[in-house]
Amino acid sequence: MGLETAFGPGFITTTLDKVINWGRRWSLYPMPYGTACCAIELMGTLASRYDLARYGAEAIRFSPRQCDLLIVSGTINNKMTPVLKRIYEQMSEPKWVIAMGACASAGGPFDSYAVLQGIDRVLPVDVYIPGCPPRPEALLQAVIKIQEKIDKETVLDRK
């Protein structure tokens, strides 16, 4: 209050965390890792009816280096696990992970020798979405949850 009057118009006072988190939460760049039917719901979420752009996360990038939100939508089998890990490692910090659907969260119905029983065995997951596949509303809520998580972070958390 007081300081702004001293600086004149065009200035506000806030904290660094608030400004940075505000920027991060409204400009998430999702990396779509679509391997199964969940990816169809992901596409539906991005399209005009559900419009992920309302949360600033419409700019899908197919290069992990340009992304900070990994949406794993679909079954991950053991043979693909190293690829997923590598994609995650290539993403720039800070980064978040959504495990979309039953398969990405826990292997889903595929309790088999070939399927990874949940991506949390190899990646740190921030938000899990239940469903097979989840509806677009569920994915929207997951993005909101990620935003809430970003709000609670401070720049000192991530190096």
Binding site: N78, K79, A106, G107, D111, S112, Y113, A114, Q117, G118, D120, R121
Partner: peptide, 26 residues
């Protein structure tokens, strides 16, 4: 399957979860 894989899955005596099954809960 990858090179290190053990067993041959379409054999009827191959366990569905594989020879070294993983636990469901981390």
């Amino acid at each position: 399957l990858w090179e290190e894989f053990e067993g041959h899955p379409l054999r009827k005596d191959f366990p569905t979860r594989g020879l070294h099954p993983v636990e469901r809960t981390p």
